[in-house]
Computed example of a mutant assay.
Amino acid sequence: MAYDHHYAVFTSFIALALSACTLTLAMDALQDFCVADLKGSPTINGFACKDPKTVQASDFSFGGLHIPGNTSNAFGSKVTPAFVTQIPGLNTFGISMARVDYARGGINPPHTHPRATEILTVIKGTLEVGFVTSNPENRLVSKVLRKGDVFVFPIGLVHFQRNTGHRNAVAIAALSSQNPGVITVANAVFGSKPDIPTDVLAKAFQVDRSVVQKLQAKF
């Protein structure tokens, strides 16, 4: 019994120590910054660091979010990112931003960010926004936002925005990753290279193969 007690105490201590180490590694930075060396490829946790002696103020700034995006496209929207590729100083910090412009009736089509939660603030106009919960519920959570309103899109969930006002709209998004990624649902499903087999998509969407072929042709 004494052996069992000591073993239980020992294993509890080890578990606590490992938890503390994990928290330390996850939270404590070992340097002031790790400005991305964009000439190399991303590693498992971001880009390699530039030599700190070569870092400039320009590595931490970006001057593009005041410029309206060109919304003359099929969706009537334009995303202007301020990710690590635009601001190398964001590397490893787990944050980024984007500006989204919407023409009248424009949409930011259903998409996901596989590596980030997004919080969106309406700067101008009126937007209908929403996300869909996971299977099997697949419940749409949506709301109409006006200037100054804020909405959160949980990480990995399919979400969208639509301009429901009578003029152009603008929003600023903040994301919990320096490289959040984006998967536009229609592009991924109907525009993959090579194509997802037509019969697979026909069965998945419960439509005729000719419908799938028409959709694939658009992408």
Rank of each mutant, 00 (worst) to 15 (best):
A202E: 10
T133M: 09
V185N: 06
A116Q: 04
D37N: 15
L38R: 07
T164D: 06
T121N: 05
G46E: 07
I44F: 06
I183T: 06
R146S: 15
G106V: 01
H66S: 13
C49P: 07
R209P: 00
V189A: 14
T43H: 06
A217V: 02
H111A: 04
G106L: 03
A186V: 07
S77N: 05
T121Q: 13
V158L: 15
Q178K: 07
G40N: 12
A98S: 14
Q86L: 00
H111C: 03
T164W: 03
Y7N: 08
R162I: 12
F10H: 08
D199V: 05
L23G: 10
C21V: 11
G105V: 07
E128Y: 03
R209T: 11
I183G: 05
D32R: 15
R115F: 15
K203A: 13
N45F: 11
N179G: 06
A8Q: 11
R146W: 09
T71V: 15
V35M: 07
Y3R: 13
L90Q: 00
A98F: 08
D37T: 03
L25A: 11
P154Q: 11
H5I: 09
L65N: 03
V9F: 11
F93M: 12
G191H: 07
P109Q: 11
Q206I: 03
A173R: 02
H159V: 00
T112G: 04
V55Y: 01
F190R: 08
F160R: 02
G63E: 06
F33W: 04
Q206F: 03
R167N: 09
E137P: 00
F83S: 08
T24V: 03
V79K: 04
K218A: 15
P68M: 10
K50W: 05
L175Q: 14
R167A: 10
S12R: 15
V150N: 14
A48Q: 13
T92Y: 05
A36T: 00
R167D: 15
V100T: 14
H5E: 12
T11R: 11
D208R: 15
A15T: 12
S134T: 15
F151G: 02
I155L: 15
F10N: 04
V170K: 04
A82K: 01
